[in-house]
Nucleic acid binder design. Structure first.
Lengths: 211, 211
DNA sequence: TAGATTGTTAATCGATTAACAATC
DNA sequence: TAGATTGTTAATCGATTAACAATC
């Protein structure tokens, strides 16, 4: 199906949103949709939608539009939801808890194998059926489960050492809630940053600009 | 100081990162920095940095570089950190707790006035000195405190009604952790979305693309 | 067939990078 | 003055939009 070798990140970042909209359409029993109608619902141009969808091969039918179910499945496939990556979560504070509780990992291509924390009070507890283990067990669990990705909900100060250690254990992707600059310090490693502080400051900017 | 009327969002989204780097430089006692050195530390081009900084007036000195302290202050000013916007947080679940505990609001131009939840067990508790109030007090507290912004850590299903109600109460900016499409349904309202699910799927994509 | 809507090429727009004269 | 580094203009690159022939 993959038509083009390279899909630009601008396109990739729109895919999860398409995926959500298509899910809703599907749930509402809508079978087909044209780029024009989808563009109106999503606040995009029809042209952009057709351009985007064409990056990975034509699924539309001329004169008819796109089959919702098929497009949904295909975008999910491209996003990699049907291959579960063994993943661990580091840090079971508020943020770690929130993430572990609400992310529906298995719908998103992630299998959460273990949570780690160094607070003795938390060890042995479970969040959504995933056990919280002491940091001492990190090496053992990573190796045994061929862990490939890690979610960092730990303080900045410890992030640097933890990342170093994880990369040695074979982790090649990070969902990073800390400010530690992984991509810069470890080129080649796959990183998706969630910089909540930056996002909040952007809101501040908008509020101010508009005052 | 504002030289150009319009600063593009691509530039604005880089500002918080400049701000962080400048803070670190400042803390390390570094007084001046050239665009070239900063570019190396941040993994950008020197050209882009000069271009970015020039959007809001020249602060550099030819042949010398930029004064760290001055640049830090100025970017903070542009981001609006020195005007605190009265803000409320809706939803004191794991995510609400995480956000309330870790965001350092006052460093980022936000004053958190009240937290709301409908869980009776939480009412009256405080997070970082901010009280959790029942949703019944929403109108009163918003009006009394001239609330302008709201942080949504509530489930999707209730977001739509809550947003409607808040806009009527004068809220004009949202930090949105839900998937409810505020900007589409309420054009003109300022929105900064945090779509964690989308971000996680982007990581899935990267992990898969690289397999 | 006629109408609709795609896939795709071309045109436009915006953002990034390169180059260099101005100047500290 | 000589060297360094900015501010700014020009060139390039990439992403979005427009247009339209292909075709269901």
């Amino acid at each position: 199906m993959a038509k083009d070798e390279h899909i630009s990140m601008s396109v990739v970042r729109r895919l999860p949103r398409y995926y959500r909209f298509l899910y809703d359409l599907k749930e509402n029993g809508i079978v087909r949709i044209s780029s024009r109608e989808l563009s109106q619902r999503m606040g995009l141009t029809a042209s952009q939608i057709r351009q985007d969808l064409n990056c990975f091969g034509g699924f539309g039918q001329q004169g008819y539009g796109y089959i919702v179910e098929q497009l949904y499945t295909e975008i999910g496939h491209i996003l990699g939801v049907d291959v579960l990556t063994p993943t661990i979560l580091l840090g079971a504070g508020n943020m770690g808890h929130a993430v572990a509780n609400h992310m529906d990992f298995e719908q998103r291509g992630i299998r959460l194998i273990s949570i780690f924390d160094n607070n003795p009070a938390l060890i042995g507890q479970k969040i959504q059926d995933v056990e919280i283990n002491p940091i001492e067990k990190l090496d053992e669990i990573c190796t045994e489960n061929k862990i490939e990705a890690a979610i960092l909900c730990i303080p900045n100060e410890v992030a640097s050492q933890v990342v170093e250690r994880l990369i040695k254990l074979g982790v090649r992707g990070f969902w990073n809630f800390s400010h530690y600059d992984i991509s810069y310090n470890h080129p080649g490693v796959l990183v998706e940053n969630v910089h909540l502080g930056d996002s909040l400051m952007t809101l501040s900017y908008k509020l101010n600009e508009n005052r």
